[in-house]
């Protein structure tokens, strides 16, 4: 780490947002026209996280599949886990945010955090691979791997996802050093802003983090049916995942770069 703090949420801070202004090359598109009334119907969103509490009211009964990554020695496999829950609450928080924005979307949980694995990069990679193979439309990754050894694996996955029309929405990591796949150009990377509105998002023309979404003091679903106020890029990512699900619902054939372009063209103007 030779530069200053990464501070990847800084471009979205209230006193810095002026710099996000730009001449939109495609023109600013009318949000209502682009999104229509689509609510995520017909779209599947996978949440690669700590699991999801299927009974939490915030999830609205839309969790249609529960899975976890299991290791056979060093080989990770995604297996069905029909009784899985969320021992942390974080995956449930993400699911609640996505459901709030795209109530018609079907949700899948792939647990990579918890008692029997450690959020290993290999587990995350296996979960993403599984989601691509099954044609999942949007994958929410509020976690990332810092392992240089997995750079190639995640790069391949990001490319495969891109060409398979699976949009990877990744929380930026504030910890110094690289994090994959959130730093790759083909994914949608997200950091937090503090405007208390789930439908306010900003586009940052100076990557690596391209989008800012609500992620400061967010009232989120938590474990055991509870709620909590939480802050972090990992709560910003599911806001963009929910919006992306709506866009895929409105434009079913849209590819990841088209979804990204629509998100950028309909982003809020910094004030």
């Amino acid at each position: 780490m030779t530069g200053p703090l990464p501070a990847w949420s800084e471009p979205f801070a209230s006193d810095r947002r002026d710099a996000l202004g730009r001449a939109a090359p495609l023109g600013r598109l009318d949000r209502a026209a682009v999104f229509g009334t689509a609510d995520g119907t017909g779209v599947t969103v996978a949440i690669v996280d700590s699991g999801v509490d299927v009974d939490h009211p915030a999830v609205g009964g839309r969790l249609v599949g529960r899975h976890r990554v299991e290791f056979d020695g060093l080989d990770p496999t995604v297996v069905d886990d029909p009784t899985a829950t969320d021992p942390v609450g974080h995956g449930t928080a993400c699911a609640g945010i996505i459901h709030g924005l795209a109530p018609g979307a079907e949700l899948l949980s792939i647990r990579v955090l918890g008692a029997d694995n450690r959020g290993k990069g290999e587990a995350v990679a296996a979960a993403v691979d599984w989601a691509i193979e099954r044609g999942v439309h949007v994958v929410n990754l509020s976690l990332s791997s810092r392992s240089d050894a997995l750079f190639g694996t995640f790069h391949d996955l990001a490319d495969r996802a891109y060409f398979a029309n699976t949009l990877l929405v990744c929380a930026a990591n504030n910890v110094p050093g690289p994090s994959y796949p959130s730093l790759f150009a083909s994914v949608v990377s997200v950091a937090a802003h503090d405007v208390a509105d789930p439908e306010v998002w900003f586009y940052n023309p100076a990557p690596p983090v391209e989008f800012g979404a609500y992620g400061v003091d967010v009232d989120v679903a938590w474990r055991d049916g509870g709620r909590i106020r939480a802050t972090g890029n990992s709560f910003a990512a599911p806001h963009i995942a929910g919006l992306a699900a709506r866009l895929r619902s409105a434009h079913p054939a849209a590819s990841p770069f088209e979804i990204k372009a629509l998100l950028a063209a309909t982003a809020d103007t910094p004030t």
Binding site: D49, S50, P87, V88, G89, H90, L113, G114, A115, R118, G119, S142, L143, S144, S145, R146, A171, N173, N174, V175, S179, D217, I228, R229, A230, T231, G232, N233, S234, F235
Partner: peptide
């Protein structure tokens, strides 16, 4: 190491903050 806020930060590698715990 697998539960709670600290467990999440440890397992996910992702920083977070919570209020009103």
């Amino acid at each position: 190491a697998t539960a709670g806020i600290a467990g999440f930060a440890f397992g996910s590698g992702q920083p977070l903050a919570v209020t009103d715990v």
